[in-house]
Simulated scan of single mutants.
Amino acid sequence: MKKYGFQQSNSDHTLFLKHNKGKVTALIIYVDDMIITGNDTEEISNIERQLGTEFEMKNLGGLKYFLGIEVARSNKGIFISQRKYVMDLLSEVGMLDCKPVDTPTIQNHKFGENSDSVPTNKEQYQRLVGKLIYLSHTRPDIAYAVNVVSQYMQNPSEAHMDAVIRIIRYLKYAPSRGLMFYKNNHLNVEGYTDADWAGSSSDRRSTSGYFTFVGGNLVTWRSKKQKVVALSSAEAEFRGMSKGLCELLWLKRLLTEIGFEPKTEMKLFCDNKAAIEISHNPVQHDRTKHIEVDRHFIKQNLEEKIIKFPFVRSEDQLADMLTKAVSSKVFHSSLDKLGIRNIYLPT
């Protein structure tokens, strides 16, 4: 790719970019599968021809299916889902006729590692969770549930397997859900970050999560247990803000490489006023001494006007569903706001 004038992205090493007279061509590769796109049709034809002299290749036309991800286009936008992958999973585990549930987790249900719990088939558990982890890369609606069950890969019990089965039953309820990308005529970069303080009953560590949007469309998300115990809700939220900021900075670098550098401050919405005040307040006190590195990192980006932290009400905090099991009403309301759709439903 470098021989043909492309540059390897520093943000994603599988991405190669070429700029020519205000136009851009992008190639992204995974093992022996690749996608070529851009607004330079002449360059796209050139690179297809040039690579054809180096490798045995086949042009499959417009993108419809890639690594288990289905792509559909319409005048409304671009829709991606993994419907076939979900149906194959349901068939594999013999649950095509199972009773569906409308949420992947049970609200207020907590389970931890219990020495008295009945062990389950470890290999089967690991295989199923591995498939769910892959699926969660395009299904933010199962991200929190998959984050929880993935923590017990080495010592799963029947209770943990029951949680996995519930996720699969939810997938039966909504096998075709996916992400819709609309042309909203802007490229604003925004995010939502949240943390559930000491939410894990087994070790009292907090779970933090974030959603990020480019041009009003959801592009990345994460739900992950924090590595250390937070001593306050503000500290837990602050650590979550730091992770969300890192993701926004990565998006900013990637967009800049492609040729669409954000022109305004990126927004990271948080529902904890204490955490927002700490990020603006350089004074050292008990609430910040455990998070000094995060505090200086955030403060630097605030001063350089790269980021700002607007307050959002808890009821409007989209990232809430990445940190805890929420009610069915909150869950489905959040999916709609995130742009998660099912284009296969009858209208």
Score class of each variant (00 low, 15 high):
residue 61 G to C: 13
residue 295 R to D: 00
residue 57 M to A: 09
residue 214 V to C: 13
residue 219 V to R: 06
residue 60 L to Q: 09
residue 89 L to A: 07
residue 207 T to D: 00
residue 276 I to K: 07
residue 300 Q to M: 08
residue 131 K to A: 12
residue 188 N to V: 13
residue 194 D to P: 00
residue 293 V to I: 15
residue 236 A to T: 02
residue 229 V to Y: 01
residue 93 V to W: 00
residue 208 S to Q: 09
residue 252 K to H: 11
residue 18 K to W: 03
residue 172 K to P: 03
residue 63 L to R: 09
residue 29 I to Y: 01
residue 267 K to C: 15
residue 303 E to N: 13
residue 80 I to A: 05
residue 128 L to R: 02
residue 11 S to K: 09
residue 234 A to Y: 01
residue 122 K to E: 03
residue 110 K to F: 04
residue 53 T to L: 13
residue 131 K to L: 10
residue 286 D to C: 10
residue 61 G to Q: 11
residue 147 N to R: 04
residue 52 G to M: 07
residue 25 T to F: 05
residue 82 Q to E: 09
residue 272 N to W: 08
residue 143 A to N: 07
residue 25 T to E: 06
residue 94 G to D: 10
residue 13 H to A: 11
residue 202 S to L: 09
residue 169 R to D: 01
residue 49 R to E: 14
residue 326 V to L: 08
residue 271 D to W: 07
residue 51 L to Q: 04
residue 45 S to P: 00
residue 309 F to N: 08
residue 314 S to D: 12
residue 218 L to G: 04
residue 53 T to A: 12
residue 251 L to A: 10
residue 280 H to R: 12
residue 241 M to T: 08
residue 153 M to K: 09
residue 320 D to W: 05
residue 28 I to P: 05
residue 145 A to Q: 01
residue 163 A to N: 07
residue 239 R to G: 05
residue 303 E to K: 14
residue 86 V to K: 03
residue 67 L to R: 08
residue 40 D to A: 04
residue 326 V to A: 07
residue 311 F to M: 12
residue 347 T to V: 14
residue 45 S to R: 08
residue 11 S to G: 15
residue 313 R to Q: 13
residue 210 Y to R: 02
residue 208 S to D: 06
residue 171 L to T: 07
residue 67 L to V: 10
residue 72 A to V: 04
residue 281 N to Q: 03
residue 241 M to Y: 02
residue 107 Q to H: 09
residue 41 T to H: 13
residue 320 D to Q: 09
residue 114 N to T: 00
residue 23 K to L: 14
residue 327 S to V: 05
residue 223 S to H: 00
residue 43 E to V: 03
residue 181 F to K: 08
residue 211 F to D: 05
residue 33 D to M: 14
residue 307 I to G: 03
residue 228 V to S: 13
residue 215 G to L: 09
residue 298 I to G: 08
residue 104 P to D: 02
residue 333 S to F: 12
residue 203 D to L: 07
residue 238 F to V: 04
residue 145 A to H: 01
residue 250 W to H: 10
residue 222 R to A: 12
residue 70 E to R: 05
residue 309 F to K: 04
residue 280 H to D: 01
residue 137 H to R: 09
residue 206 S to G: 08
residue 226 Q to M: 01
residue 272 N to T: 03
residue 181 F to Y: 15
residue 314 S to N: 11
residue 27 L to T: 02
residue 207 T to S: 02
residue 55 F to T: 11
residue 35 I to K: 11
residue 51 L to G: 08
residue 115 S to T: 10
residue 325 A to Y: 01
residue 216 G to E: 00
